[in-house]
Design a protein around this nucleic acid. Structure first.
Lengths: 242, 242
DNA sequence: CGACCCCTTGATTAGCCTCAACAACCGTGG
DNA sequence: CCACGGTTGTTGAGGCTAATCAAGGGGTCG
């Protein structure tokens, strides 16, 4: 078994019991490898359940009738993706690997069984989902109400913060998104993304070398992005384990 | 007890057992009245849990550092709001009543107990939350990747569809949002919202009389908005009741 | 009656998009 | 090994969408 599993991630928030750990191991048994650039599932296809990311980065996007594309989420190891499979029979989003990746498919029913067997885990997943919902709302605010530079600053801050949560050592961001994809996240064109990145570099806020982006002044970026700092989850309301 | 409770809404998706119904009644016992224009909770304030809307419409918004405001959700009776209270100790969004409203506050711990006592209800709420997450992603796509007219068409289609789910008779939309608020949903200025509404009216797609908006050609609006039709929830994965 | 909010409309500006051309890089196949 | 096509990044010029600034009208509430 390779990669960073959900059990790892959940144990950052609560102390897992042996039974809970075993249940998660059972849930995360299957692993599917996805090569960079290939899609795990396409919008409209029949889906059987969500996935847990074990390794690599992925993106979820929706297509517009006018040919446009919006990337609605970038997913890192330890995160759940494709949750719309719990609401609808067909996938609402196309999920595509940004790097070579390993994911674990979860059948809806397996997921449902978790509510019976391990209510505390189910509740924690609910809390995590609520937190990601807040992050999505924040991105909507960024796209809807801030200028281009700020949107890109916001994305960069978001990604480094999440990458750092996985690897506290990393001070530079190995950026797997093309400028066109950055545009699809932020609602801009690739051309304009390019100009804004150049602007940020000229102003000494970031340094670029190939795909690697280093944040030279995270404070100024955060200020420019009107970021909201990552918050710690409250877990005091979860039911008792067992 | 007034209004449209959560039990009503959930029973559209599954047949509730008596025990489940009783549990929901217990959950929804408290009712708080909120007058139009007043806020239930402000961003940053300590929060104790989410709310269930029993009557009226409310909006959730976030403030940007630059003075901007983004409305991230419009909530109708039967819906859960303020779910970020399950993730963070302080409210992530300001919730404000668009009409006189009645809501039921739910303490985090009450909500947590639901996972122990009624796993099927907890799982259904998870599914509903996943569905709303999809709707939020769709709005992000609308704001990020479609022109002003399309964004407004999208909002109108969304609101009438949801209003109609509550009252199938209603063919007109009693719009409680000011044009400035419509702008805060769609990422536009009030002035431009006004011009776009006029344009839609001039083209015979909507008719306006005061606050009441009638959709004259919903098909054309949907096409213009690149809307995705409301889908039916899958519930086959939920654990058994009891 | 006056103050305030909301709607409406016009004129001007600015931010971002479109179109276009080229350089750099990559994986592929000859 | 190199030639090649395709993708990505870069930069310039010009146009369009939506923001800004400004002014006035209608409604409601104190």
């Amino acid at each position: 078994l390779v990669g960073f599993c959900l059990a790892n991630r959940l144990s950052h928030h609560i102390d897992l019991t042996d039974a809970e750990r075993a249940a998660l191991n059972g849930l995360e048994a299957d692993q599917v490898h996805v090569r960079r650039g290939t899609s795990l599932i396409a919008e409209g296809e029949r889906s059987t359940g969500p996935y847990i990311v074990h390794e690599g980065w992925l993106r979820s996007s929706v297509l517009l009738g006018n040919g446009g594309r919006q990337i609605v989420r970038i997913s890192l190891p330890g995160e759940l993706i494709g949750l719309s499979a719990l609401a609808y029979p067909d996938a609402a989003e196309t999920i595509c690997a940004l790097t070579d990746a390993v994911v674990c498919p979860i059948d809806r029913r397996q997921f449902g069984a978790l509510f019976d067997d391990h209510p505390r885990l189910a509740a924690l997943l609910f809390a995590i989902t609520a937190g990601e919902d807040t992050a999505l709302a924040e991105r909507l605010a960024s796209v809807g109400r801030t200028p281009a530079r700020a949107r890109i600053a916001h994305l960069l801050c978001d990604l480094v913060a999440r990458a750092r949560a996985l690897d506290p050592e990393a001070d530079a961001l190995q950026m797997p998104l093309t400028q066109e994809e950055i545009g699809d996240v932020t609602g801009l064109t690739a051309v304009h993304v390019n100009r804004m990145l150049r602007g940020l570099a000229d102003d000494g806020m970031i340094a670029r070398r190939g795909n690697v982006i280093r944040l030279l002044s995270e404070a100024r970026l955060i200020e420019e992005a009107h970021c909201i700092a990552a918050r710690r989850l409250v877990t005091d309301w979860l039911p008792r384990a067992g």
